[in-house]
Design a protein around this nucleic acid. Structure first.
Lengths: 233, 233
DNA sequence: GACTGCTAAATTGTATACAGATCAAGGCAC
DNA sequence: GTGCCTTGATCTGTATACAATTTAGCAGTC
């Protein structure tokens, strides 16, 4: 049943996308060994392309590889979460500088419109996944305005890694009757002012604010992870 | 001739290391197709582990994969070099903040000793590869003092990507009778002062200074790349 | 000469086979 | 009961085979 070259399907990239989405959603438990045969059957491919996809995840730090023992889901320690939030600061602060200098008024207007829309949806939704998506959309959109693909790519990888933590964080924020929309609006106003250094500082303050809650959020996240009805997406 | 599991050799990781070193040294010409059979023979392995290693490089952006057509060496455009230098600024500026806050006097003293040593070696050597190694050592060492593995890992990947450009840049700097040692010493002095924001600014100024020469350096680099006796490393 | 269609060679894509390592469980000695 | 060895089952590591596709070379045509 040799299936052979199917270039337009691009099995490895498809598998990679599926695995990364699963990893971002913590479908694999931290430290858990990944059984290649089982997983390949579940994804409808053979072990060869699966291993190729897993090796991409190794390079990005989602998965660990131990020689002779296979692939393991990498776990998120408290310190690693701290490091990832700091990396987020590094990238987003630099990106927002670039956005401040380069973004057109129309582009900033589009972001504000998006924030208005998100603000309305925030009021309605209780789905923590959706909360996280709306929040993430603002950050990725703004970072995209720096017009730097490298920064954007690095940020997406970091977001995938801390998505679960952020989901828990934003949910607990909402439970306290607050959202990040107002913070985002403040950052956007500084960007509008054209002061790149101030925009960077505003972004830093915002992310540090969230990072301070991360250590608490991760505990909630882990509790969910092992709960019978854990977060799905 | 099934060679089977040899966990302590860890073929894929070995291949990955070799390939990454070759990619950093621009052993593959930009845009060039990578022939799997030939390369696997050259590296003494079969295609399966080679493809796994190549997939790691895809995830890190050293190599591109086109479905049905194989792996291609990714080329370094002028704009991508600019983006990578900006990513360098993002990471190193944040890291030097951390280093300023967290590094001990002894650790800073060790870096200074290293600078002294490099300074002496700079005077003797004309090997551009060695120049680049000495320069890189300072930056990686300082970034390491932030005690953030994520930042350090990201920086190493960026350095591997722009190594060729940096080699050309530092060589032309040396040809003009200058080195980066003095700039590094200035940055270190600001770190010593304990002012994190100032340290970040000093690092930014230093890297922007080099980035300004990068576009010129890349032209030199490409000339070398296609010269009969190109840079070897 | 440039373009198109055909054919053969080269190359990729992935399933599969199997060697050898790891892991888990049970038995044995202490 | 605890620790160690043995042993069988399980799983990983990689070579290989072969289908399908891309690529290159070559005529023939406009």
């Amino acid at each position: 049943m040799t299936q052979a070259a199917k270039p337009h399907d691009d099995t490895v990239s498809t598998l990679y996308g599926q695995l990364r989405a699963q990893a971002a959603a913590f479908a694999f438990k931290p430290g858990e060994r990944i059984n290649e045969s089982t997983l390949s059957r579940a994804l409808g491919a053979s072990r060869t392309p699966l291993r190729e996809a897993l090796n991409r995840l190794v390079a990005e730090g989602f998965v660990e590889f131990h020689a002779g023992r296979g692939f393991f889901c990498r776990d998120l320690s408290d310190t690693r979460i701290g490091h990832l939030y700091q990396a987020r600061i590094a990238i987003e602060c630099e990106a927002v500088r670039g956005a401040t200098l380069r973004a057109s008024a129309a582009q900033l207007h589009a972001i504000e419109a998006e924030l208005d829309e998100s603000g309305r949806e925030y009021a309605d939704t209780t789905d923590p996944i959706r909360l996280m998506e709306l929040d993430e959309r603002f950050h990725l959109h703004l970072t995209g305005l720096s017009r730097n693909d490298e920064l954007l790519g690095l940020l997406k990888t970091i977001y995938d890694k801390i998505r679960f933590v952020r989901t828990a964080d934003l949910r607990s924020l909402q439970a306290a009757g607050r959202t990040t929309t107002e913070n985002h609006r403040e950052v956007l106003n500084v960007v509008r002012s054209g002061d790149a250094a101030a925009a960077s500082d505003a972004m830093r303050a915002h992310i540090e604010d969230r990072a301070r809650h991360a250590s608490q959020a991760v505990r909630l996240a882990y509790a969910d992870l092992y709960a019978p009805q854990g977060l799905r997406a």
